[in-house]
């Protein structure tokens, strides 16, 4: 996501066209982030909308236009967390709370108390050929605890760098790396039938 800070500044001044340009440059990533986090297209649409509305409303508070992308992602993660915590989400979807099983999770002291919510349904597959494969990968990703899911999506699907992810989540780069590592380990287990080269 390459953003021209001048476009950000113009949007900050209330320029709707500039804001649309920001939306066009970033919505693919944000939409897919919300999609893979929630596992549901309709929810992803709503959350994406909410993200950009919050961005528009608080754009004036962004001191450094160069930091737009990480700031945007921070808002996106918050929008997702707000939704995940809301009871209406609980009413609508079956929730299974999964405790993280990593004993050597260096963040045990964090106690963020984030609900670990696997997605309710995987996305329907459209490509018949690679359909089953996609399904499996998607299900594996959605079964990851939220903390791990976020970094996997941002790094492997959106293509964000480790530094950007760290800034967006407000954690150290090392934390991002260890979350990615743990996520890989978990995914490797879930996808064991498909990754082995023997």
């Amino acid at each position: 996501m390459m953003i021209d800070p001048r476009t950000v500044k113009r949007a900050q001044n209330g320029d709707h066209k500039a804001f649309k340009r920001l939306y066009d440059s970033t919505s693919l990533g944000i939409y897919n982030l919300m999609l893979r986090m929630s596992g549901n297209r309709e929810t992803a649409e709503d959350l994406t909308q909410e993200v950009y509305l919050r961005v528009w409303r608080s754009l004036g508070g962004l001191k450094s236009p160069k930091a737009f992308v990480t700031w945007l992602h921070r808002i996106a993660i918050n929008v997702y967390r707000d939704w995940a915590k809301s009871a209406s989400h609980r009413l609508e979807e079956m929730r299974v709370e999964v405790q993280a099983q990593n004993q050597d999770d260096p963040e045990d002291e964090d106690n963020e108390d984030l609900d670990l919510i696997p997605s309710s349904h995987p996305l329907p597959d459209e490509e018949a050929l690679r359909g089953e494969m996609r399904d499996v990968i998607e299900r594996a990703i959605s079964s990851l605890p939220e903390k791990y899911r976020a970094v996997v999506i941002m790094h492997h699907i959106e293509g964000l760098g480790l530094k950007e992810i760290a800034k967006s989540l407000d954690v150290a780069q090392g934390t991002v790396m260890s979350r990615l590592a743990r996520a890989r380990a978990m995914l490797r287990e879930k996808l064991s039938g498909y990754v082995e080269g023997d």
Binding site: Y31, E45, T48, M133, R134, I137, I141, I157, R184, L187
Partner: peptide, 16 residues
Amino acid sequence: LRKVGEMVESLPLEKP
């Protein structure tokens, strides 16, 4: 482990 990364990256991006 490396293949896992590739598999995730192979997921296509959906257009909003």
